[in-house]
Design a binder for these strands. Structure first.
Lengths: 254, 254
DNA sequence: GTACACCTTGACGCAACGTCAATGTCAAAT
DNA sequence: ATTTGACATTGACGTTGCGTCAAGGTGTAC
């Protein structure tokens, strides 16, 4: 079956402007243009638009959607499975929000008290999920799904005080690292302090600490451009320096 | 407890830029500025921000949120109750999406077939909800919650053919109305045809037809600027003319 | 005093369209 | 053949809600 632009826009619940825009940016091209210059969409485009709308529902930018869909390895069945999982996650977030509003009502009606932090439960999940989306894949591959889940649970239950503590620790790592680099020696007292502080920071996120995982993370900071860029903001070559300091601290230096 | 801008942004999971923007547009002013010119937020602002985030989660524009929150009659407990309801509705939509993706997977794996229209189930709900949001309150007040629910269910189950039929009918109403106005007589054959077509159009949306409801809707078209503006696009004074035609058609003309 | 985290204002840019203008195409009615 | 109205095109401006950056002030610990 074929659709002109208005037909498809009504079918899918998007505007014709949206479809023209998608053609323009190359995310959803019509099957063909007829002799009058009208866009004609076919079955493949229907399915493609469905995928686009799922990705959009899950907060993915059009630029990213374009990259994903144009990948020769794109597999629509796998994508659909992933959408399913993400939608279930999204539903969980919504459940948090629903619980939050119920709690807020109870608090307003005097049945309970509620901390300021609790008032934003469910919203904040967006930030955590964004972070997860950014790094989650790599961390999953390296440490497994279970570790990530536990880490997530631990982070979620963090109190406000703990949150501030971990923020301070993260900063202390950077501070000490910056100073330690001046010594030029990853084995120096300051460098070892940085590694120690880094470990303490990690204990807020990891259910269990292991020297191997710690050292692996240090290596990841060097191998992954995003982490490397973050630490190199502290000081050029900070990622390598921290990795080396961790290797010495953990006793795993080769 | 008081918060500087970064404290509140971290608490709520929004950026400092967002909070400054909210100050700028007057939607969330800080409690005070300290002697250094720093924004200081208090308990009232925390609660206000929570409300804002709920409204945002529910798709309300900042402009509208501002209007709602600055209304002297704004009642936060009632607002929270409404958020709760809306979040439950939103979860329903999400459930539709989840069902959709599951069905699409089944179809892809050859276990069932799926129409193009079904592929967009759940997304289209956005359009319906937008429509509901636009007119829903007024219709609810006039005809009660039950009627709206049934109407919603009926619309949801509309087939593609029915959808096209109702679209055609809506157009036919406008066409005939435009012609009938030329007669200047709401009792003329053409005007009565417009009212008849309007009734047929309504039967797609209303579970039950009544002359009183029909006449009431005609009056609503005149009283409500949004409806009036829509019909007056067809022809100046079309809203009044259609109302009069309906009154005659229903025999309820006084 | 210095360094660093945090704060301000101002301003430019962006994503994803919505809206509008001008004009071409199609199909049915006259 | 002409008219009318629905549908289509391209081009272009504008909007919402920030993200990002620059320049410079403030607070606190060393």
């Amino acid at each position: 079956m074929e659709y002109t632009i208005q037909k498809l826009s009504r079918l899918a619940g998007v505007s014709t402007r949206t479809l023209r825009y998608y053609d323009e940016i190359g995310i959803l091209k019509p099957a063909r243009m007829n002799s009058s210059g009208y866009r004609i969409y076919g079955q493949a485009e229907v399915d493609m638009l469905q995928q686009i709308l799922f990705y959009k529902e899950l907060g993915v930018s059009l630029d990213q959607i374009k990259q994903i869909l144009s990948d020769p390895n794109f597999n629509s069945l796998n994508a659909l499975r992933e959408h399913h999982q993400q939608l279930l996650d999204k539903r969980k977030q919504l459940d948090f929000l629903i619980a939050n509003v119920q709690k807020t009502i109870d608090a307003k009606e005097g049945r309970m008290t509620m901390s300021d932090r609790e008032k934003f439960e469910g919203f904040k999940k967006k930030m955590i999920e964004d972070n997860e989306k950014k790094y989650g894949e790599e961390i999953r591959e390296k440490y497994g799904e279970d570790t990530v889940k536990k880490s997530y649970e631990k982070f979620k239950n963090m109190t406000e005080e703990e949150y501030e503590e971990v923020t301070r620790l993260g900063q202390a790592v950077n501070d000490t690292l910056s100073e330690a680099i001046k010594t030029g020696d990853p084995g120096s007292r300051l460098a070892q302090k940085a590694a120690e502080l880094h470990k303490q920071w990690l204990t807020f996120y990891w259910p269990e600490y292991s020297k191997e995982a710690h050292a692996g993370l240090g290596q990841m900071y060097v191998d992954d451009e995003r982490f490397k860029a973050y630490y190199d903001q502290v000081h050029p070559n900070a990622a390598e320096f921290l990795r080396d300091a961790i290797l010495i601290y953990t006793g795993l230096k080769k």
